[in-house]
Amino acid sequence: MKQPLTLKINGENRLLLVEPFYSLLDCLRDEARLTGSKKGCDEGDCGACTVLLDGKPVTSCLVLAHSAHDAEITTIEGLADVDGLSPVQKAFVEHGGLQCGFCIPGLIMSATGFLQANPEPTEEDVRFAIGGNLCRCTGYNRVVEAIMAAAAEMRESA
């Protein structure tokens, strides 16, 4: 039976009714209706469901929803604000780091979590950091380019 659960998502407390066996991903999509996080495999293999838990990227399909009640959850919907896109989002747009877009929320969340902790990455670091994100469309060239550009941009504006 669904149980009440309060989650702090993108800075907001949300009171939800959630099945005890639901993953955080199912909870975000089915109950919170934040459908930006994508289900590409439901097995931890693709990274499309990546969100930040207390700032760290995790595959939300591998997290039990009810275990996340004391964490700060950031999803793709939480990055842009009224002033516009986050630096990572902007870089993906400008550098053409996306095609079908299904992997993109996950990639952007991985990159966001990574850059917060590693402001001066090498290209090799970036490729390692997104090693858990599958993208079938882009070949990663422009994704890596976008993340490097976002890092530079964030350093400048910091």
Binding site: R33, T35, G36, A80, F92, V93, L98, G101, I104, I108
Partner: peptide, 20 residues
């Protein structure tokens, strides 16, 4: 930039599984 880039980087682009 792609015409759909903004939707896609913000998670707003709606795929079939996003229909409720």
């Amino acid at each position: 930039p792609r015409v759909d880039a903004y939707e896609k980087v913000t998670g707003r682009a709606a795929y079939a599984s996003d229909v409720y």
